[in-house]
Design a protein around this nucleic acid. Structure first.
Lengths: 120, 120
DNA sequence: TTCACGTGTAATGTCACCCTGACAGGTGAA
DNA sequence: TTCACCTGTCAGGGTGACATTACACGTGAA
């Protein structure tokens, strides 16, 4: 099932920033904890927190609090494989998904191009 | 050739708003002039202008000033077919395109998944 | 002339996003 | 204890996106 408009907009907003693109690039190499990631990207930690939060809400990354061998708390983030398609159909599907959630007026169907593909 | 990060961000920002999604949906049915479009969407005309401007800069829509049979000036907008793909590779390609424009440091290559497809 | 329609833009306000700096708390090692 | 790490959050400011309102201007028809 494709995304509705709110979900689509969340993804677009999450990807719509250079720093977050760089976060994705960095996490593509493997999981990293927050402080280390902030150091690599040259970002302040609070700022990186905000970016990671947005990415996580959109389902692009996943965070997990773990304990290192030292016993210190480390928050590791890793990339969730994603594959989105942007064209007129996916846009229309997102908008129609909103209406279908409300009192359905009509029930027409067309050839659907599926939006989400976790096939890597 | 894929987009660089600035171009990618322009597309993401252009699509990242409900009203603009609705504009795309409306223009998918055919070309419409601004005032008519504003009426259909229930938007103020100046506001719609801003949205159309953003969409045009991103290459999603195209505007053309024409004269109606009455001799009145009408600005018609129509949809440019687009097809974008969003995944880790396209993100990395966008970021690498930025570096390649600057003094090239390294010249490595991988399997490219092309970003833009005007194949409708 | 007045009306109804269209384009285009300037002035203005609100608000979310982005970013910095500071703080509170926890751990293990010197 | 002090240091060097880490997590988590909050208060503040700057800036641009979003949205409304009003204006200037042109056309054809009543």
């Amino acid at each position: 099932m494709p995304l509705n408009s709110a979900e689509l907009l969340a993804v677009l907003a999450a990807l719509g920033h250079v720093q977050r693109l760089r976060v994705i690039e960095e996490l593509a190499a493997g999981r990293v904890h927050v402080s280390e990631l902030a150091r690599r990207l040259g970002l302040s930690r609070p700022l990186l927190y905000m970016h990671l939060e947005r990415l996580e809400k959109a389902g692009i990354v996943t965070g997990a609090l773990e304990l290192s061998a030292d016993g210190k708390a480390m928050k590791y983030f890793e990339l969730t494989p994603f594959e989105f398609r942007l064209n007129v159909d996916t846009v229309r599907q997102a908008l129609r998904a909103d209406q279908d959630a409300s009192p359905g007026t009509s029930g027409n169907e067309e050839g659907p191009t599926d939006m989400e593909d976790t096939s890597t």
